[in-house]
Design a protein around this nucleic acid. Structure first.
Lengths: 216, 216
DNA sequence: TGTACATCAGTGAACGCGCGTTCACTGATGTAC
DNA sequence: TGTACATCAGTGAACGCGCGTTCACTGATGTAC
């Protein structure tokens, strides 16, 4: 298995990024070495530098990839529901036990956020872009009018502001639900947050949708 | 400088924990070695094991210490204000630019949360206890009655539930405000979150208090 | 289409480095007499 | 109170290990003729 075709190379590249996006979310950026990633992709470590200038370049791609993957999964799933229920479903899915228990396929914000804050400029740039995209996607789930007195006045782009606040709140709740070692407390964080954000953002269309569902 | 008096030992111990609490918040748990910490405490690395069984034991103490330190600083500061303004002040202080720009003395949840979720049992236990204490302290700032329809019904210990939700939301906003590389976007996350959580939790006593202040 | 050669994806050994931890040692402190 | 000795906080060299990165090499692919 020496030289590969052009197409095979880009497939390999994608395979490395996918492995990295999964492993980084599961064990942290600093907790995963290049040899481990390459081996998961079925290669040896030396070949890494045919695809990436250094580890940071991969981290940047993997961050963006991880954000986009979990975002698309959630948004796509939620779009199956009637418009007025979508936001409530998104919240329930994000704060589900299934999401908490599978960080490796879940949102990258609670898993990688604090490491990204200390990471190389290119990593932060990639993360920022993915976050902005996520806010844009999420904003489309909001009803046209500003909700529940959440913002100062009718500022421009109020839906994007609300999406940011919601996303940050969900990420924080997931961060803590995972950090805490008491399962009952973890459940309590998830439930209380779910009730709160539904009431604050998903208005009325909330009462009947079920608690937890499987994301992706 | 060989053997020290008993008192000197516990002072040294506290000095190592304080250095660790600062450095870990600044650079992450995995980003700081024992030699670096000991040198900041004015010692050589070999002496570490006279104070701690291993790195995890220090991490557990430093987590609890960092949580308690920033919590006490904020709560003490906020208690100077009249009761009905305290929660709004707490929110403003937590989401201040000063807090964002000084993670090394700030709250440990956004800086260490994702590493704690993957850390040794004793670390998670120490973090959990500190988080519960934090919720308890914060709950005392809430008015006696449940606020703003945040919870399903008048559940038992509603104030603690609200404190959890608020704390998680603030931590998430800070996490993202630090991760993002665009200063204007960071500011926007902070401002939008501040307005939202004040409206949701600090009821009316909000309009006149100023935006950012210095914590600690 | 067939042959000759350059390219380069992937291999695997090796690099320097910093990590957490260990260990023999030192000498001031605390204690027994 | 004064002396003799055990304790142990702190020193600094050394350990094995895994990390990110480099490099000479291989051989199938892509290209020029």
């Amino acid at each position: 298995m020496m030289r590969r075709t052009k197409q095979a190379k880009s497939e390999t590249h994608a395979r490395i990024v996918a492995a990295a996006a999964r492993r980084f979310r599961a064990k942290g950026i600093g907790g995963v070495g290049i040899a481990e990633l390459m081996s998961e992709a079925g290669l040896t470590h030396g070949g890494f530098y045919a695809h990436f200038g250094n580890k940071d370049a991969l981290v940047a791609e993997a961050c963006a990839g991880g954000m986009a993957q979990s975002r698309d999964g959630l948004i796509r799933h939620v779009r199956k529901a009637p418009a007025e229920q979508r936001l409530a479903r998104f919240i329930a899915l994000y704060l589900s036990a299934a999401h908490r228990d599978h960080p490796e396929t879940g949102c990258a914000m609670p898993t990688l956020g604090s490491e990204v804050a200390r990471a190389a400029p290119e990593v932060r740039a990639a993360f920022t872009e993915a976050f902005v995209d996520y806010c844009g996607e999420l904003a489309t789930l909001f009803p046209g009018v500003p909700v529940a007195g959440a913002l100062d006045e009718a500022a421009p782009d109020a839906a994007a502001d609300e999406a940011m606040v919601l996303l940050a709140g969900l990420a924080g709740s997931m961060l803590l639900a995972r950090a805490v070692d008491d399962p009952a407390l973890s459940e309590r964080i998830l439930h209380a947050s779910k009730a709160f954000y539904r009431a604050a953002f998903a208005g009325s269309g909330t009462t009947r949708s079920p608690g937890d569902e499987q994301p992706r």
